[in-house]
């Protein structure tokens, strides 16, 4: 059985093809202005990559901010259940899932059976999301990748008082004018995001093991700041941005099996 999970995120669309529980292909493309068209194009591109056609796919499941516009989706799920399912598949002892995407952050607490017990989503404030790191990287005139690496070279603790992405940018400019080293500012930026995410995690409660997923998990500076803030090991899977689409594909497969055996 081939199931497809499509995570139509605010910035990128991610797709995962699953065949009998094994990932056979993944793909990613910008969401752009038309998530419907972008999802369809990514689906066709990934089908061609693995030599399949639409008729080979048993079921499509969508998730993410644009989940309702994904063409051909039989199941439509929130990111909460998709992220939880994907994370537990990758590491069954995970009890807390932290998802930091381009536009929102999310904390999910699961029990031993994998059931979601508590979740919180912050979809309003950019200060705890990938958009914040992008804006700060621009202010520091470094790439996103450099921002993460720079942060790791600092051991200083520079407080950033601003709780808002817009005001934080002014604070970064002020720190630059005060000749604060770039690496210290980079660490301050990641510490600030980690603090915002920590605050949301406290709302749902933190149980180890903790897994960080979503595109921002690729930022090594943020991962280090979050580990320090949590005082716990935070696991990052190999492809953190695909966990949502993987979870959606897994749930699609679960539901097909349930239907077949009912």
């Amino acid at each position: 059985m081939i199931t497809v999970g499509i995570d139509a995120g605010a910035k990128n669309i991610k797709i995962t093809f699953l065949k009998d529980g094994e990932v056979i292909a993944t793909g990613i493309s910008p969401s752009g202005f038309d998530q419907n068209a972008a999802s369809e194009a990514l689906m066709n591109e990934t089908l061609a990559k693995v030599g399949l056609t639409h008729s080979d796919v048993d079921v499509i499941c969508s998730t993410g901010a644009g989940r309702k516009v994904v063409p051909g989706a039989k199941h439509v799920l929130t990111e909460v259940s998709a992220m939880a399912r994907g994370s537990l598949f990758l590491r069954p002892d995970v009890r807390t899932v932290i998802d930091v995407g381009a536009e929102e952050g999310r904390a999910i607490r699961c029990n031993e059976a994998g059931k979601v017990e508590d979740f919180a989503v912050n979809e309003k404030c950019a200060a705890g999301s990938g958009a914040f790191t992008e804006a700060m990287a621009r202010a520091l005139e470094v790439s996103l990748e450099e921002l993460g690496k720079l942060s790791l070279t600092s051991s200083a603790s520079v407080p950033m008082n601003a709780q808002c992405a817009v005001f934080a940018e002014s604070e970064v400019i002020s720190l630059l004018h005060a000749s604060t080293p770039k690496q210290d500012i980079a660490k301050a930026i990641h510490d600030a995001i980690a603090s915002r995410i920590m605050s949301m995690c406290r709302r749902v409660g933190i149980n180890p093991a903790i897994m960080l997923v979503g595109g921002v998990a690729r930022n090594v500076g943020f991962v280090q700041s979050l580990r320090t803030a949590m005082e716990e090991e935070v696991f990052v899977p190999d492809n953190p941005e695909f966990v949502g689409s993987l979870g959606a594909a897994l749930i699609a497969a679960d539901r097909e099996v349930e239907t077949a055996t009912a």
């Binding site: 508590d118 005001f167 709302r203």
Partner: peptide, 16 residues
Amino acid sequence: MKANYGYMDGSGDYFI
């Protein structure tokens, strides 16, 4: 499951 809907910003946490 406890579902928290809302947001947090610089002025505080606002969740139902």
